[in-house]
């Protein structure tokens, strides 16, 4: 964030370079600030809210969403979208559960699931790139296809009894004091770190941003646009299958109807984190914060305890709205027409 601490630029610089430079970070910073504010509000409203474990539980309960949001960030940064992620999560869970039930080695199962997810994404990317069909449609078809394949595998829920998976479900990694996280959290945070590195330190990552800034410009600049566009969907597919494995660790079962609508949560997290759906602007750390915001909304609901299912929906919608409005308010000052 060196931009924020830089000395003020001389006045004669054209068109407020400095402000616009900051404006890039504004939505993400606003999200982080607001998350902290919400956490503080929770601490005031509910006893016991202000604890490290409540925060860590946000991570523990949302590992799969974090990973999904990371993959989605890549796609959205290029100006695309991936609606298939929820279904691919369910498909990954089904494949894993079915194969484990058939007595496969867990390592082989995980490898196969990750391969399937990545291939599924790459294929969608190829269709998008080669046939120039809109990502929304291709990935919507991907959503139907993956969900359909789940039913083909099994209509019923399959329980996972594999010792490795159950041990992952129960394992706790102790931190200072009584605080702990699950192994899933470590995996999710590693994914975030890798994504951050790739997006900011590699040519591939910068090409992702360039495509979002202007695809035809990126082509004329001689960048590897087609390859990058296919790869981002591959990455999203891979992240979906990682999320599927994490979800399996969490739920110890495979079920065709699992993770329905999760794609919207992932998209919401990414956008709440400050990424523009038109591409080119946004950060994975923002997406991580976006997931935490969605998580804290859930936590509020659970602390409230007595809400009927419809009030829960309304409150989630309202909190989402309040959040977006506040974010808008904070970024408005730095945004220029």
């Amino acid at each position: 964030m060196s931009v924020l601490t830089r000395t003020p630029a001389p006045l004669d610089r054209p068109r407020m370079t400095r402000l616009r430079g900051k404006a890039r970070y504004a939505p993400t910073l606003a999200t982080m600030g607001l998350f902290l504010a919400m956490f503080a509000a929770g601490a005031v409203m509910y006893p016991g809210f202000l604890s490290g474990q409540v925060f860590l539980n946000l991570l523990i309960d949302n590992t799969f969403l974090i990973v999904l949001a990371v993959g989605m960030t890549f796609v959205i940064l290029t100006g695309g979208i991936d609606l298939s992620v929820g279904s691919v999560v369910a498909l990954s869970m089904m494949i894993a559960a079915a194969l484990l039930q058939a007595g496969w080695n867990p390592a082989a199962v995980i490898a196969l699931v990750l391969l399937t997810g990545a291939t599924f994404g790459l294929l969608m990317g190829l269709v998008i790139q080669v046939f120039e069909i809109q990502p929304f449609i291709v990935t919507l078809a991907g959503l139907f296809l993956a969900r359909g394949l789940c039913y083909v595998i099994s209509v019923d829920s399959i329980t996972v009894t594999d010792p490795f998976f159950t041990s992952m479900a129960q394992a706790r990694i102790p931190l200072v004091g009584t605080l702990f996280v699950s192994p899933g959290v470590v995996i999710a945070l590693v994914v975030v770190a890798v994504a951050f590195y790739v997006l900011h330190q590699t040519r591939f990552g910068r090409t992702v941003y360039a495509i979002g800034g202007g695809e035809s410009s990126a082509l004329l600049m001689g960048l590897a646009v087609p390859r990058t566009k296919v790869l981002v969907y591959g990455i999203s597919g891979l992240c979906s299958s990682i999320a599927g494995i994490l979800f399996s660790f969490y739920s110890l079962s495979g079920y065709s109807l699992a993770a329905t609508g999760l794609e919207l949560d992932a998209i919401a997290a990414v956008v709440v984190g400050g990424t523009l759906l038109t591409g080119g602007y946004g950060y994975v750390l923002g997406s991580l914060t976006g997931v935490l915001v969605l998580g804290i909304v859930q936590t509020f609901i659970s602390y409230e305890g007595t809400l009927s299912s419809w009030w829960t929906r309304i409150v989630i919608g309202a909190l989402l709205l309040v959040f977006i409005l506040l974010q808008k308010l904070f970024t408005r000052k730095v945004r220029l027409t």
């Binding site: 919401a268 956008v271 419809w310 309304i314 919608g317």
Partner: peptide, 22 residues
């Protein structure tokens, strides 16, 4: 307000069914 359409309408998509149930 200038909210991205997909998010602006997602709010009502989420809350709307709750309202209908209400």
């Amino acid at each position: 307000i200038g909210i991205q359409p997909i998010i602006a309408t997602l709010v009502l998509m989420t809350a709307g069914r709750g309202l209908a149930q209400l």
